[in-house]
Amino acid sequence: MSNLHLLDTKDWGLEPIRKGFGRGLADAGAKNEQIVALCADLTSSTQISLFAEQFPERFVEVGIAEQNLVTVASGMAAMGKIPFTASYAAFSPGRNWEQIKTTVALNNQNVKIIGAHAGLYTGPDGATHQMLEDVAIMRVMPNMVVIVPGDSLEAYKATLAIANDPRPTYLRLARDKSPIMTTDQTPFEIGKAYIYTPGHDLTIIANGTVTSLAVQAAESLFKDAIDAEVIHSPTVKPLDEETIYKSVKKTRAVVVVEEAQRAGGLGGAVSEFLSENLPVPVVRVGVRDQYGQSGTPEQLIHHYGLSKHHIMMAAHHAVDMKK
């Protein structure tokens, strides 16, 4: 839609989503001196290095100690700071979930959990580092906001937005470069989903790196006589139920696409909402109860059934179920 100032697919650029976070945190830090950054020995790859270089007195290196990472941050938040904690998603929230629950979420402290290198785009590092369960485990935690940006520019805006929001937040980032679909003018608000492609026959809801594949799938589906509406939902929690409801009321069939386990993530959130309010077929595209492996992101996206082709098959399946 034109008011979102999106790029045509032919004009898409490429950049890792985490780069937008790095720039966003440095800019947020310049605006608010209460922002502090903590890292567990992954300063450069999480891109928190940009903040650390500009504000060394507000940067805390905790070493390879993810439990300490978030609990020190909880203490700093209790004293009025706004701590951003960065590690790989496999370790934070992968290793320190209980500390996040007890000392951040239940304690309701304004700590930001930045999970970098999440999902299949972590590539050659293999299964141990490809965090696929993070969206599910963070979404079920009361008080926690969960955001999965679709490109680096959105990650930049999301970082500025969460810096100004008092709630504990999980922000999921990807390692390898992925398409830039948006522009500086494209809006971002916590809790808002955006209609990237309008349509009438089917609603495709996506976030993260694979929103780009959903948009491409919708273009090809049009040739198959399926007029699909693509909703980009960077905020998994709180879910933009209004936008989703309006779309699904019209289309009566849904495909959810995410670069994570099918169980419990965005697909879980959408299914839970619709089953209680507007029961329609929901087909979830994601990793099917499996661990990842080494490979390029492209190889892994294909292997685990998340490619444009797989999204199109899921779309046909969902539309067929309407009949």
Binding site: A73, S74, G75, M76, A77, M79
Partner: peptide
């Protein structure tokens, strides 16, 4: 750890 974060702050 929480105490350390507070002391550092």
């Amino acid at each position: 750890s929480q105490g350390a974060g507070m002391a550092l702050t």
